[in-house]
Amino acid sequence: MAGQSGNITRQETVPNTAFPPPPVAGLFCSSTGNASCGDAERAHKFCEEFPLYRPVKPFDAMYSSVQRYDLCPSRSPEFCGNISVVDQGRWRGSTTNGNGDCLLTTNLPLYFSMKDSPFLTKTSKTIYFEVRLIDIRDGPATQSTDDSGFSVGFVAQPYPTWRFPGWERGSLGVFSDDGCRFVNDSWGGKSFTSKFTIGETVGLGMTFRLPMKAPSTPANEDEKVNVEVFFTRNRLGGDFDLYGALGLFGGVDFEVLFDPAVWLWTPQDRF
Rank of each mutant, 00 (worst) to 15 (best):
D70Q: 04
C80E: 07
P58Y: 01
N184P: 01
M114D: 01
P20N: 12
R163G: 05
R270Q: 12
S84N: 09
P55D: 13
G170E: 11
R68A: 15
R169S: 12
R10N: 13
T32H: 03
L52N: 00
F119E: 15
P211L: 10
V174R: 02
C102H: 03
S31L: 13
L110G: 07
K45E: 14
S74Q: 07
P22F: 11
L246P: 03
T123Q: 11
D70P: 03
I134M: 09
N34G: 04
P218R: 14
A25Y: 07
Q157T: 12
L52T: 00
S124E: 10
S191P: 00
K224D: 07
P77E: 07
M114Y: 00
E78L: 10
E49Q: 09
M114S: 02
S74F: 02
D269F: 05
C37W: 01
T13V: 09
G170P: 10
T106D: 00
M1A: 09
K125V: 06
G237A: 10
G26N: 08
N82Y: 09
N234K: 09
R181V: 11
E168S: 01
D222F: 15
E48R: 13
T197E: 15
N234D: 15
I83Q: 07
S148N: 05
T9M: 12
N226I: 12
S31T: 09
F19V: 08
A156M: 00
S194W: 13
G6I: 13
P58I: 03
W187G: 01
G100P: 04
T126A: 07
P51T: 01
V252T: 07
W162F: 06
P23V: 05
G38V: 06
D269Q: 10
T123A: 14
F196N: 06
V183H: 00
F271M: 13
P51F: 01
Q88R: 09
R233M: 08
C72I: 04
F231V: 04
L71Y: 00
E48K: 08
R169T: 11
Y53C: 01
D101Y: 12
K115L: 14
P165T: 04
P73I: 06
T145L: 04
D116P: 02
E228C: 13
G237I: 04
P158Y: 06
V56Q: 00
L104E: 07
L120H: 03
W265G: 04
R235H: 04
L104K: 11
R163T: 03
A219I: 08
D269C: 08
R181E: 13
G188F: 14
T161D: 06
F59I: 05
A40Q: 05
G139R: 03
G153Q: 02
V227L: 13
A25S: 09
P215C: 07
T96W: 05
F19C: 05
A61H: 11
A156N: 02
R75V: 08
T106M: 02
K190A: 13
F150R: 03
K224C: 12
G26D: 02
